[in-house]
Simulated assay, not measured.
Amino acid sequence: MIKTKITNFISGSIFLPNVRQLVAGLVRAMVKCYPIEILETLLPQTCESIEKILHKSEITLLNDHNGDLELTWYLVLFAELVQARGDILLIYQKMIKSIFHQCIRILHKDSYEAIAKAIQNLLRSLLNIYPMNYRLTREKLDEPFIDFLPIRIWGQNADFDQIQVQYHIPNVDEIDFVCDFVNTFIYSELTFLKENFLKVSKDERLRSLTVISSLAIGCFRIVSRIESKEVPNL
Rank of each mutant, 00 (worst) to 15 (best):
R221P: 02
N183P: 02
I226Q: 13
R221E: 14
V223Y: 02
T210A: 11
I153Q: 14
R225D: 04
L193S: 07
I212P: 10
R207E: 01
Q162G: 09
L190S: 04
F145N: 02
L149A: 07
Q164L: 07
L149I: 04
V178H: 03
W154D: 06
I226T: 13
R152S: 05
P150H: 09
R152C: 05
F185H: 14
E143Y: 01
T191L: 12
Q162D: 10
D180F: 08
D180L: 09
F145L: 12
R138E: 13
V223I: 14
R207P: 08
F192H: 07
E143Q: 12
L193R: 10
F181K: 01
T137K: 02
N183Q: 03
R138S: 10
D173P: 03
R138Y: 01
S224H: 06
S213V: 03
P150Q: 10
V200N: 01
K140W: 00
R138N: 13
D173K: 15
S224N: 14
N183L: 06
F192D: 05
R135C: 03
Q156R: 11
G218V: 14
E174N: 08
K202F: 11
D142G: 02
V172Y: 15
I217F: 12
V211S: 00
V200L: 01
P144F: 04
L198K: 15
Y187P: 00
E189W: 03
K140D: 09
I212E: 12
C219K: 06
T184G: 00
V211A: 13
E189Q: 09
D176S: 13
P170W: 05
I163N: 08
N171Y: 13
T210Y: 03
I222H: 02
N157T: 08
Q164E: 14
I212N: 06
I212G: 12
I163F: 10
V211K: 04
I217T: 15
E204K: 14
Q166N: 11
I186G: 04
I153D: 15
R221N: 12
F145Q: 02
F197S: 04
L190F: 08
S201T: 15
L190A: 11
L136K: 03
S201M: 05
Q162K: 11
R152W: 04
L215K: 09
H168C: 00
T184Y: 11
R152N: 08
E139D: 11
I175Y: 06
D142K: 01
E189M: 11
E174M: 09
D142H: 03
Y187M: 05
Q164C: 05
L190W: 01
F220Y: 14
V178I: 05
L190M: 15
E143P: 00
I151Q: 12
I169N: 13
D203H: 06
S188R: 08
V182N: 04
